[in-house]
């Protein structure tokens, strides 16, 4: 594709934490291609005896463990994404907030909150909350799912675009925390016993868990896997 050479071909590995490029002395991966690929390093590494055993090499500069790819990247990413997806159901069905005004109490789910803003004429705010709490998480589920499936199949389809998509997910993902913070601020303020009260409800816990799980899922995924199908 381009003149760029991958670290794997050069027999080097870059530290995930500090970015230092180090000589690859990690035990060889036992994959069918690697067995016949003379370019894959490790065959002359001094740790032949340790091959196959769980064993790690630390970055000589910052001490973080070195990996060619994040360990169990896809499996962890899938597990966290599915956990997020499961939490997303109670997050939407259960109320996130309880509001009482002059003795009249009502519970609101996330969507009800959005609709309330829309009906009261605050279209902008309704849109912001809708984007942060519905659109962003749903897009994230979809995008991460597509990225994981295509990387698992070592697809060479739209690699550059998929890489961009991944960076976009990392960039916007945490804005979903918005609803949790709104509930926090509102609940801290409105505490007038008897007159008016706002309290958090269980839905917000599930919603927060959705955000955290999907963030962890995106972090576990190693974007370099997108390019691994590209064998040059």
């Amino acid at each position: 594709m381009t003149g760029a050479v991958s670290a794997r071909r050069l027999g080097v590995v870059s530290c995930h934490a500090c970015g230092l490029v180090c000589q690859d002395t990690l035990p060889q991966e036992i994959t069918p291609q690697a067995a016949h690929d003379p370019h894959v390093p490790g065959s002359d590494a001094p740790d032949n005896a340790d091959r196959g055993r769980s064993y790690h090499v630390d970055c000589p500069r910052c001490g973080a463990p070195l990996h060619r790819r994040r360990p169990n990247s896809i499996a962890r990413a899938w597990a966290l994404l599915l956990a997020g997806l499961i939490f997303y159901i109670p997050a939407n069905v259960l109320p996130v907030m309880y509001t009482s005004l002059m003795g009249k109490g009502s519970e609101n789910t996330i969507m009800q909150g959005v609709i309330e803003f829309w009906k009261s004429g605050s279209y902008g705010i309704a849109l912001v909350i809708f984007i942060a709490s519905v659109l962003v998480p749903c897009t994230k589920f979809l995008v991460l799912g597509v990225l994981f499936v295509t990387s698992q199949r070592r697809s060479r389809w739209a690699m550059k675009e998929r890489a961009k998509l991944y960076r976009m997910v990392e960039l916007v993902g945490y804005w979903s925390m918005l609803d949790v913070l709104v509930v926090a601020v509102v609940a801290a303020l409105v505490k007038f016993q008897g007159l008016s009260d706002i309290e958090p409800r269980i839905g917000i816990l599930f919603f927060g868990m959705v955000v955290i799980m999907t963030m962890l899922s995106a972090m576990s995924f190693d974007p370099r896997l997108i390019w691994d199908g590209d064998t040059e």
Partner: peptide, 11 residues
Amino acid sequence: LVACEHCDSVY
């Protein structure tokens, strides 16, 4: 050297 964090290319 620097390796791209996103695709492992070395420069």
